[in-house]
C-alpha cells in the first residue's frame, strides 16, 4: 500500500467533513475517489497534502507515518488551480519544482524534457498572461508531475479541458502509472473512472460508502441481467423476466437459481439467438444508486 488512511476524522465549526474514513490505496494503481459535491473529497485530499490536519486518525505514506517531508513526494493538481500571471512559464515552473525540493539544474533538465514532450518548447520565456487556458492547463500539469512524485493527486483534472487536451492528459496519466506512480484521482465524471481507474472509493456525507477493485465493485452491483439480440418472437420464457424489449433486442433478468446455460437453453427454444452479453452496471448507475441509497 502506498497510502493507508485509518479512521480519519475532520470536523469544521458547522459540519463534519470526514467521519471515520479508512482507505487503502495500492502502489502503482489509479485510485478513483468519487462522490457528490461537498461529500468530503477535497477535505480528505487537503489532509493527505498536509494543507490541513485531521482531528483524529492517521495516515501512512509508503509505510511511514505521514510527515511534512512527504509533501515533496506528492504532486497535487487542485481543482481550483492557477499560476502567477506576471511570471514567465519557465521560471514559474522552475520555482514550483524547487519548492518541491528539486535542485535547480535537475529541475531545469526535467522541465526541458517535459517541454519537448508536450511540444511547447517555445513557451519558456512567455508570460503566463499570454497563454490560452489550454496552455495554462498543460503548464499546471507539468508543475504537478515534474518532481516525479510517488503519489499524484488530481482533483477534477478534466474540468475545463477541451477533448484534445483531455485525451493528452489521459495518455499522460496512464504513462505516469506505467512508470510506477500511484494516482489518486478525484472526480464525479464517471466515464473517466471507467477508462482509467483500477480501484475506487465512493464518499458520501463524510463517509466511505463503497470501495474496492473496479471490476469487483461492478460485479457486486450486477443485477443478473443480460442483453440479447435475436430473431423471432420472444414470448414468455420460464424463469426469465423481460426487463425491456425493442424489436430484435431485449434485456432479460434471470430469476434465482437459474444458471446461464439453462437460461440460454430455454431462450433458444423460442428465438434464434444472435448475441448474448451480461449487463455490467455503469459507474454512473452505481454512483446514482449508492448516493441515493445513502442520502
Amino acid at each position: 500500500m502506498l497510502l493507508s488512511i485509518r479512521h480519519l476524522e475532520k470536523r469544521y465549526a458547522d459540519h463534519v467533513a470526514l467521519n471515520d474514513v479508512s482507505l487503502e490505496i495500492p502502489k502503482g494503481k489509479i485510485f478513483g475517489l468519487l462522490g457528490p459535491n461537498g461529500a468530503g473529497k477535497t477535505s480528505l485530499i487537503r489532509i493527505i497534502t498536509q494543507i490541513t490536519g485531521p482531528d483524529a486518525g492517521e495516515i501512512y505514506f509508503d509505510g511511514e507515518r505521514l510527515r511534512l517531508a512527504h509533501v515533496d513526494q506528492i504532486g497535487y493538481l487542485p481543482e481550483e488551480r492557477g499560476l502567477y500571471k506576471k511570471m514567465k512559464v519557465g521560471e514559474q515552473l522552475l520555482y514550483l519544482a524547487q519548492l518541491k525540493g528539486m535542485r535547480k539544474e535537475e529541475a531545469i533538465s526535467k522541465l526541458k524534457e517535459w517541454f519537448i514532450r508536450l511540444d511547447i518548447k517555445e513557451w519558456w520565456n512567455k508570460p503566463v498572461d499570454d497563454l490560452s487556458k489550454g496552455m495554462q492547463q498543460k503548464t499546471q500539469f507539468i508543475a504537478t508531475v515534474v518532481h516525479e512524485p510517488k503519489l499524484l493527486i488530481l482533483d477534477e483534472p478534466f474540468s475545463g479541458f477541451d477533448p484534445i487536451n483531455a485525451n493528452m492528459l489521459k495518455d499522460e496519466i496512464l504513462g505516469i502509472k506505467e512508470r510506477g506512480t500511484t494516482v489518486l484521482f478525484s472526480t464525479h465524471r464517471m466515464d473517466s473512472v471507467e477508462e482509467l481507474c483500477d480501484e475506487i472509493a465512493l464518499i458520501n456525507h463524510a463517509q466511505v460508502v463503497l470501495s474496492g477493485n473496479k471490476d469487483e465493485v461492478q460485479n457486486r452491483y450486477k443485477k443478473n441481467q443480460f442483453a440479447i439480440r435475436f430473431e423471432g418472437e420472444l414470448g414468455s420464457i420460464p424463469g426469465i423476466e423481460v426487463v425491456s424489449t425493442q424489436p430484435g433486442h431485449a434485456i432479460l433478468r434471470f430469476l434465482e437459481g437459474l444458471g446461464t446455460n439453462e437460461a440460454i437453453a430455454n431462450i433458444i427454444q423460442h428465438v434464434r439467438l444472435l448475441e448474448f452479453k451480461e449487463v455490467i452496471p455503469s459507474f454512473n448507475d452505481i454512483f446514482i444508486q449508492v448516493v441515493s441509497e445513502t442520502n
Binding site: 499560476l83 500571471k85 518541491k100 499546471q140
Partner: peptide
C-alpha cells in the same frame, strides 16, 4: 490577494506551510 484570486495558493501550500 493575487495568490488567492489567481488560485495558485493551493498549489503553493501543498509544497510549503
Amino acid at each position: 490577494i493575487e495568490e488567492k484570486s489567481s488560485r495558485i495558493i493551493e498549489v503553493i501550500i501543498s509544497s510549503v506551510k
